[in-house]
Design a protein around this nucleic acid. Structure first.
Lengths: 208, 208
DNA sequence: GGATGTGAATAGGTTCACAGCG
DNA sequence: CGCTGTGAACCTATTCACATCC
C-alpha cells in the first residue's frame, strides 16, 4: 500500500467525527453521498478515501457506521495515544489548551519561558518551565507538540522539541519551520489564512 | 489572466511578509532561491508564483525587494482595506482578537450572543450583541468574518453574515460550511489538524 | 556565469463512468 | 435498480530544463 496523502487523512478524521455523531443518533448505515453532503465533497471522493483505509461497504446498504468508524480509528489512532505538549502559554496557547483539554487527543504538559506562567495548572494541564522540557517530553513519551510561541523563537523551540524526541509539530508561529525528514510539521499561519480569505472575498464582491 | 490558485495566494502573502522583513533590514535585492530557502519551497515555485503577480525581476540581480513587495500588495490588498468582523468571543475568539488587533488587517467589530461579553471593548475592539450584526456589518462595510462559535451555531451564524453582505469566512468551527458561489470559506479545523499531525508523527516514529 | 521566465514533463489529486453485486 | 469499488481520464500543481538576458 502506498503512502496515504495528507488530504485524505484530514478528510478521514472528519468522516470519523461525523460517524461518531451518527452513532450517537443510532444511525446504522450511511452512503457515500451522505458523508459527501455533510463534508462538502463528492461521493467519489468519499469512496476513494475509504478505499485507503481498506474498509468495504456493501452495495445496496452502503457503509456500516460503527464498522467504518472503527476502521478509520484503526488507521488514525496509535495503539496507545501519543503524548501531546503545548509550548507557549500566551493568549493563543491558552485558547488552544482550553480547546483541546478534555478531548481524546489531550495535552499532557504545557511549557513557557515566562516564570509567571509556569508551575501551575491551567484548564487541567500542568505548566512547566522550558528547562524541564527534555525531561518531561521523555518521561511522558510526548511525540507531538503544538507551537504557540512568537515567530522569533519558533525554530529554536522546534529544534529543542525534536531533539527531545517529538516527531510531529502543529505550528502556529508565522514561520515555516525546518525539520528533518523523520518529523512532520503542519503550519497554520493565521495571518496568511486571513489574507487569503480577504483576497477571495474581494474577488467575489460585486465591484472588484 | 486566469484565476490565481489559493495556494499561490497563500505563498505570496508569505513572500510579502518576508520581503517586509528584508526591507526593514535595508536589503535591496533578493533571489528566488533566497525566498525559497526561508519559505521552505523551491526556486522554481517562487518564480512561478511571482509570474502570477506580473512582476519581473532581472537576471543577474534577482528581484527588487521594494518593488516586488509593492507588486504583491497591489494584487492582494483591496484599494481600501476590507472590514473584518469576529463572531464568537470565547477563549479562541479572544485569542484571535488579540492576535489580529494592531495588524494591517484588523478587526473592526466583534459579536457574541452572550450579553455578558458584549457592550465593552476587548483588545481595542468593540463587542456587540448578535442582534446588531446586520446593521454594523452594513455600516462598517464588513466583507470578511472570522467564525469562532460552537459547531452547532456555525452554519446559522454564517448564513446571517452572508445575508448581511459578508463575502469571505475564516471558519474555526469544526463543521464544513455551506456557502453560495459568490462567497469564499476557509475552514481551519483544529482537531483535524492535530489528528493529522499525530498520524504522521506516528508514521515517522521508530516503531510504528 | 548565474540569474530569470517559461514551455514541457511529471506528479498528485479528483472526477468520470462503468462493471459487479446484493 | 442503486449502491460500491476502481481503472482511466482529467485537471491542477510542481518541477525540470533550457533559452534568454544582464
Amino acid at each position: 500500500m502506498s503512502e496515504i496523502s495528507s488530504k485524505t487523512i484530514s478528510r478521514l478524521s472528519l468522516y470519523r467525527r461525523i460517524l461518531r455523531g451518527l452513532q450517537s443518533e443510532r444511525v446504522q448505515q450511511v452512503y457515500s453521498h451522505d458523508l459527501a453532503r455533510v463534508c462538502r465533497t463528492t461521493p467519489a471522493q468519499v469512496r476513494r478515501d475509504i478505499m485507503a483505509v481498506g474498509y468495504s461497504g456493501s452495495p445496496r446498504r452502503g457503509y456500516d457506521v460503527g464498522e467504518l468508524a472503527r476502521s478509520i480509528a484503526d488507521l488514525l489512532d496509535a495503539p496507545e495515544d501519543l503524548g501531546i505538549a503545548l509550548v507557549g502559554i500566551g493568549n493563543l496557547g491558552r485558547a488552544l489548551l482550553s480547546y483541546f483539554m478534555g478531548r481524546r487527543l489531550t495535552i499532557r504538559a504545557a511549557f513557557d519561558q515566562d516564570a509567571e506562567k509556569t508551575n501551575r495548572v491551567l484548564h487541567g494541564c500542568r505548566c512547566y518551565a522550558m528547562s524541564e522540557l527534555p525531561a518531561i517530553v521523555s518521561a511522558q513519551e510526548i511525540r507531538v507538540a503544538i507551537l504557540a510561541v512568537p515567530a522569533a523563537q519558533a525554530q529554536d523551540v522546534a529544534d529543542h522539541l525534536l531533539q527531545a524526541g517529538v516527531r510531529g509539530l502543529l505550528n502556529f508561529a508565522p514561520v515555516p519551520l525546518r525539520v528533518p525528514a523523520d518529523a512532520y510539521v503542519e503550519t497554520i499561519d493565521l495571518a496568511v489564512a486571513l489574507e487569503k480569505v480577504a483576497f477571495f472575498a474581494r474577488q467575489r464582491s460585486p465591484v472588484p
